[in-house]
Write a protein that binds this DNA or RNA. Structure first.
Length: 434
RNA sequence: GUGGACGUAGCUCAGCUGGUAGAGUCCCGGAUUGUGAUUCCGGCCGUCGCGGGUUCGAGUCCCGUCGUCCACCCCA
């Protein structure tokens, strides 16, 4: 408090504290197992890449590149950037490690991403993504499988307030042609466009379509649809994807206005949204990027991927389930007397060897017995193990149940490793309120 | 980047129209010097986010700034 202006977290960069870690660990565990079951392999990538990688992959005129990247010059004079997303790095790694020839890669990675945005709920400057990429599969079968895998993930996590939106952006040629038609349309109605839309008319006219401004809805609903201007191959690709999703029983809505803010997407795009998180409602989204790899200098390879916002999914998780009790100790060891205190570590190490599954918390930092028992109680332990000078002289220790009326008993030191696990099973079976 | 709300003890909060701060909880000690959670008694903890202004006097009013939250924007 006194050094507040000196010791301060960087804006938009959060600590995840022990009280909140459960959801993170659960999401990490479930995704790890699920991805392995679908044949995806983990890779770990640098957080920093050359700035030019993101400029070329994401697009020079996107918001991310224009105003959100953490870019700096290192002491060698290179322009480097803290990754704002994961796909560019995965593709770069596939190229530079010679993984592309005849590639059929199923990869996933995770970690922090960085974007300099104004923080709000579900949007932070350092945030975490779990990212999945399939490289070398033309689809649409892999498109459907990826989406099915995400649907299964929500099911396994117990998340229900989500909806799947899909769309096709067509090939980059088709998109370019559509873009001209769209710009022509909006220019005819330029008088009713708001300031944001006028700005986007030059840079990224497709984004005008998902404006939230109520006054814009009339113009937008009258705009020509990308869906009506797809090239025949993309049309087939998308129709087959829809049929496969339907056959798999996965609910979706086709949203012709679903466009992405990154330039590399082509054909299939999808987004899982929720109504439970406020304005930052996209929890998982991605799409196909068939042209990106050649654009970055690799041999032509089709690919599709998605990223999930960890903070957002964890927030959803915390809404659907009680925060689990923090892990508590089985046994709390208290000591009485100087000799017992010195002997305690050795005795406990021996017990850890003999009963590795029992969690033993040893009282640290001294304190009288009153104090030690108060700590034992707060630790949640079922049992207190009392090592006192008097007991040790007789070769015994005292065992006191902390959640039961059952009285304290003595046990020979050499029998503790047998007696404690048996007692814990007994005590765990019938917890009483004291 | 734009707009709005809010910053008081470690935590949760109260402080009416300006008269220099309070509760609960937590923590510590005692009643019980080898036995916890309940009870009772006592104690510690604040430059009222920070800086400036108005005033005899500012937690309270004004300005600036930093931070948090929400929305726009953006997106995972």
């Amino acid at each position: 408090m006194e050094n507040k202006f000196l010791v301060q977290a960087v804006r938009g960069m959060n600590d995840v504290l022990p009280a909140n870690i459960a959801g993170w660990e659960r999401l990490e565990r479930v995704t790890r197992e699920l991805f392995a079951a679908y044949g995806f392999e983990e890779m770990r990538l640098p957080i920093v890449e050359h700035t030019s990688l993101f400029k070329r992959a994401i697009g020079e005129f996107t918001d991310i590149v224009e105003k959100e990247m953490y870019t700096f010059t290192d002491t060698g004079g290179d322009s480097l950037t803290l990754r704002p997303e994961a796909t560019a790095g995965v593709v770069r790694a596939a190229i530079t490690n010679g993984m592309l020839r005849g590639a059929r890669l199923k990869l996933w990675t995770s970690g922090p991403m960085f974007r300099h945005e104004r923080p709000q709920k579900g949007r932070y400057r350092q945030f975490h993504q779990i990212d999945v990429e399939s490289i070398g599969f033309p689809g649409p079968d892999i498109d459907a499988e990826l989406i099915a895998m995400t649907a299964r993930l929500w099911k396994q996590l117990g998340i229900t307030r989500v909806k799947l939106k899909i769309n096709s952006l067509g090939t980059s040629e088709a998109r370019r042609a559509y873009r001209e038609i769209l710009v022509a349309y909006f220019r005819q109605h330029q008088a009713v466009l708001d300031a944001d839309s006028l700005r986007r008319l030059e840079g990224n006219p497709l984004r005008i379509l998902d404006s939230k401004n109520p006054d814009m809805q009339a113009v937008i609903s009258g705009a020509p649809l990308l869906t009506d201007h797809l090239d025949p191959e993309s049309r087939d690709h998308f129709d087959t994807l829809c049929a496969m999703l339907a056959a798999a029983g996965i609910e979706y809505v086709v949203d012709p206005r679903l466009v992405r803010g990154l330039d590399y997407y082509s054909r299939t795009v999808f987004e899982w949204v929720t109504d439970a998180l406020g304005a930052q409602d996209a929890i998982c989204s991605g799409g196909r990027y068939d042209g990106l790899i050649t654009q970055l200098g690799g041999e032509a390879t089709p690919a599709i991927g998605f990223a999930m916002g960890v903070e957002r999914v964890v927030e959803l998780l915390s809404q659907v389930e009680e925060e689990p009790e923090p892990p508590s100790a089985d046994v709390y060891v208290v000591t009485a007397g100087e000799r017992a205190q010195r002997a305690a570590l050795g005795i406990v190490e021996g017990l850890r060897d003999a009963m590795p599954d029992v969690t033993l918390h040893v009282n640290l930092g001294g304190g009288n017995l009153k104090k030690q028992f108060a700590r034992a109680d707060k630790s949640g332990a079922l049992l207190a193990l009392v090592l006192g000078d008097g007991e040790l002289e007789r070769g015994v220790a005292a065992l006191k149940p902390l959640r039961h009326e059952a009285g304290q008993s003595e046990c020979a030191l050499e029998d503790l490793a047998d007696r404690i696990p048996a007692l814990l099973v007994e005590l765990a079976g019938s917890p009483e309120e004291l």
